[in-house]
Structure formats: structure tokens, C-alpha cells
Design a protein around this nucleic acid. Structure first.
Length: 212
DNA sequence: AACTCGGGGCA
DNA sequence: TGCCCAGAGTT
């Protein structure tokens, strides 16, 4: 079963690479801490909306110190439209303080350390590792990945931790980074949670949903 | 395992 | 105007 699923996964990846092989992180940022901030904001929020928020946020706050010393109410005002802004504002400031106090101002580069930061769990940590540092200790699993991996019958159930473990067994390691980017892009643009655009889907020849 | 934490887009 | 989208933390 594992071998067949691996071959199936690679087939999917090869097809997706034709359309999405060049795709990178959808979040805008110009430093690791900006990416960390954007990634924290992206919880339960689309990347497009995060980019809208960070456009002004990144003009107002330039350094990790600026975030660590930020007035919570003022910062919250900048990030309101990303939703859950009271949690996220607190988390951004607390994470900035920890980056300064514990890591000398540099965003840490391991999963274990990133998970200690406020507002950072596995999905966000994976995003930071991949896009800020080009490292991957796992596969970023968001709702797009859950939906599409289940749809393609690569995985089952909806526990992101379990899905990530299963995908790490099925997807060859050299594809981990691109797999997330490509699936997320497909999920945002084509294979949406609602009203998927089957005609434009790269996978419409093999999608189990369309074979019945 | 179940709950809380908002706001924006679209019908 | 009400439904749906998108993760982390706490109990």
C-alpha cells in the first residue's frame, strides 16, 4: 500500500509541477520576523487578506524591537481585518519579546524552538521554516491540504497532525516544500472548499471526485 | 474532545 | 443577513 501510494503521490506532484512548480510562499515579507508575523496572522485567515494587513503593518513596525515594544491597542488596530486580532496581537508581541530575549533577535530555525513562540503551532512553524530558511522538518498542513489530500485519497480523517505524518511517509522528502505550495495554490484558486473549478483543474483526469 | 477567539466575502 | 472560510490555545 505504501509503495503504491508513493507512486500515486509522485504522479500527482509531477502533474501539479507543470502548472505550479514555480509557486512560492503567498505571503509578502522581507525578513524572517516579517514572515513569522504574517504566518501568525494567517491563522484562520486567507493569505490575500494577510498581505493587505501587513502592507501597512510593516510600514509602521520595522524591527523586532518595534514589535516587542508596540502598544497593543495600536498594533491591534493595524491587524483587525485579519480576524482574532486580540489573540494575534498578543502573540506577535510576545513572540517578538521571546525572539529578542531568548534568541538574540533572530527568529529560531528549528521546529522545536519555533513551537515555543506564541501563536505558532506546526502549520505556522512549517511555513516559517520553509519560506524564511528553506528548511523543512515537515509538511505544512492547512485546510487546503487536508481537504485535497483526503479528496485524492492520499490520506483519511481530518486530524492535521495525523495527516502530516501520513504525508511525510507518502511524499518523498525532496517534494515536501513544493507539495505544500502547490496543493495550497490549487486549493485557493481551483480546488476550493466551495465551488471547485473542475474544468481548470490540473488533476481533473485523475481526481476520484470526477471518476464516478 | 470541545470550546473560544472576529472579521470579511458572498449569496 | 446568515452562512462559510481559515489555526492556535485552553480546559
Amino acid at each position: 500500500m505504501e509503495r503504491n501510494k508513493k507512486e500515486y503521490a509522485v504522479r500527482i506532484i509531477k502533474i501539479l509541477e507543470e502548472d505550479y512548480g514555480h509557486v512560492k510562499c503567498a505571503l509578502n515579507f522581507s525578513s524572517p520576523f516579517e514572515l513569522l508575523t504574517a504566518a501568525i496572522l494567517s491563522a484562520q485567515c486567507t493569505d490575500e487578506r494577510v498581505n493587505k494587513v501587513t502592507e501597512n503593518l510593516f510600514k509602521r513596525y520595522k524591527s523586532v524591537e518595534d514589535y516587542a515594544n508596540a502598544d497593543i491597542l495600536e498594533l491591534e488596530n493595524y491587524i483587525k481585518s485579519a480576524g482574532f486580532f486580540r489573540n494575534k496581537g498578543k502573540n506577535i508581541i510576545k513572540s517578538a519579546q521571546m525572539v529578542i530575549n531568548k534568541y538574540n533577535g533572530d527568529v529560531p530555525q528549528t521546529m522545536e524552538e519555533l513551537l515555543e513562540l506564541s501563536g505558532v503551532a506546526r502549520k505556522t512553524a512549517n511555513v516559517v521554516l520553509v519560506s524564511a530558511f528553506g528548511k523543512s522538518e515537515g509538511i505544512a498542513v492547512d485546510t487546503h491540504v487536508i481537504r485535497i489530500a483526503n479528496l485524492l485519497e492520499l490520506t483519511e480523517y481530518d486530524d492535521p497532525v495525523k495527516i502530516e505524518k501520513d504525508l511525510m511517509k507518502i511524499v518523498p522528502k525532496k517534494y515536501w516544500i513544493n507539495f505544500s505550495f502547490m496543493i495550497q495554490t490549487l486549493g485557493r484558486r481551483i480546488c476550493k472548499a466551495r465551488n471547485p473549478v473542475h474544468v481548470f483543474c490540473s488533476l481533473n483526469k485523475i481526481c476520484p471526485l470526477l471518476q464516478k
